[in-house]
Write a protein that binds this DNA or RNA. Sequence first.
RNA 1: CGGGAUGUAGCUCAGCUUGGCUAGAGCGCCUGGUUUGGGACCAGGAAGUCGCAGGUUCAAAUCCUGUCAUCCCGACCA
Length: 582
Amino acid sequence: MRWSQTFIPTMKEVPSDAEVPSHQWMLRAGLIRQLMAGAYTYLPLGLRALKKAEAIVRAEMDAAGGVEIFMPALQPIDLFERTGRKEAFGNVLIKFDVKRGDRTVHLALGPTHEEVVTDLISKHISSYRQLPLTLYQIQIKFRNEERPRFGVLRTSEFLMKDAYSFHANVESLNDTYQKIYKAYCRIFARCGLDYLPVEAESGPIGGDASHEFMIPANNGEDQIVHCKKTGYAANLERAETGRKTPSLEAPANAAALTKVSTPNVGSIDAVCKMLKCTPQQMVKTLIYVADEKPVAVLIRGDHEANENKVRRALNAKTLELADTGTIFKVTGAPVGFAGPVGIKCPVIADHDVPAIANAITGANEADAHLTGVNVGRDYQLTTTFDLRNAAAGDPSPRGEGTLELVHGIEVGHVFKLGTKYSVSLDATFDDENAVRQPIIMGCYGIGVNRIIAGLAETKNDANGLIWPLSIAPYSVILCPLGVAEEEVTKLTEMLYAQLQAAGVDVLLDDRDQRPGVKFKDADLIGIPLRIVIGGKGLKDGVIEAKWRWEADARKLPVATAVSAILELLTARKAEEAAKVQA
RNA sequence: CGGGAUGUAGCUCAGCUUGGCUAGAGCGCCUGGUUUGGGACCAGGAAGUCGCAGGUUCAAAUCCUGUCAUCCCGACCA
């Protein structure tokens, strides 16, 4: 492609409403333009990169046994009512009515396709002999994001590869899950991403295992807990800590239990201010209702309760914060004055709570707190649990090493769904004994736009983007210096034709621009291999080849330039491929 | 949905506090010339409903009210 004949609007300055690097670079390099919040046009360079990512995803999904289909973005709302997800999605689901004759049809734009694919399968799979089956598609998804942000990292419509697997038994599901997990590793490695698979919370939709594929990046929306020593990685909701139950005896030098008046001071911050203490000295007493029974959960004042952990510790199906009536019933006080001493419900505590000597808690009495509260004397615990979000510095659950917190961009998710959708949409099969069973499902998503944005976010330098060869919109950029000189033009055209004939994606910067402009733009758009054809080199019979990530160019004799360029590309491809595990 | 910020030329921004000439600059763009190995220089030129609507005023980019849009923090995110 000739630069003058395509559309690459590069920008010298940073657009004022782009904050994160990926957004800034993608705009400046002419990959995308914004239409409105959360909706972007892909320009030629951006689209080419996106298509390359899409091709890698497709190739690896095919290799993993997936079969590609294409489902409608337009979906009947009825399907979401049957699975209860009209409610669950709420405002995120884009719904609208259309008139057809005298009828009104209720539609939604697909935020994902579990319903559609399960409906499809329910009509055509009836025997275990037809299973397993893995279907996938690459489709635009629509979600009414409450707050689109970070350029193309969080948008209201996005390109997603979503796959769904169908099984007669859990072993088969596990087998496919592993295959796709490995395919994902290959996909992200081939795309040149530094990725991290992390254990993820399977959430209330059911299922027993889930991994997210994250790109560590400062601007990532997700928090990942990672232990470099043991390799443990999990998202914040899921991450366990290696903390253990401490001594549950009162310390020897325990201070006296004292009631202090704290009128209208119900929050941790306010109490700290009034009593001149730190949140670390306080015990937060949260009243939950677990399976309809009240329970008090003790957490150190500066920590956050993790409701999934609380629910698991209690072995409860449902868990929600108690209403004020329940709180008054068990504490005898309004919200903000609960404490473990004398409370009228079961109490569970996080590991860090008993270690607080002379703690400060609510007094279970309006406008009063207790100081000098100590476990074993003022309240009793038989054990403690991991009930809070992991924090940097916690011991790893794998027995050695220390946890650190990093931010990440979620690019992929694999998930064992179980039978949630097959049950609600009646997708069943006959097993070997002619017994009807719900089909067991898995689902697997990849945000294709996020592959591109993730690369833009993490692979750049002060001058612009640095694409891996596998995703780069063009592999080679030809920069003739002095397009008016016949010798330069002739050689350039020859290289252009021969490289194209050899199947190389070549961009020819045929603009009549000064060298500085061409170099700056070439760096900005991040094409891996830059070939400079200029009078300086031609005098010595050479052209110059420079990788985007290298400082210095190598000289190639004109006579063998084409084969030398092809060799460079081949060698680089092999280098990139070596990073992908078989 | 709560909190904060911004809207002036294609891009980045000044002007607004304290209303007052024809609304400015840099980059980009067009014309001509000189240049040509890391975003050149000279001369000339085109380009703006000052987000939109209403109000105050002799007079509004500037003050007031409303509204729309975008960005950031938080809540939310199968």
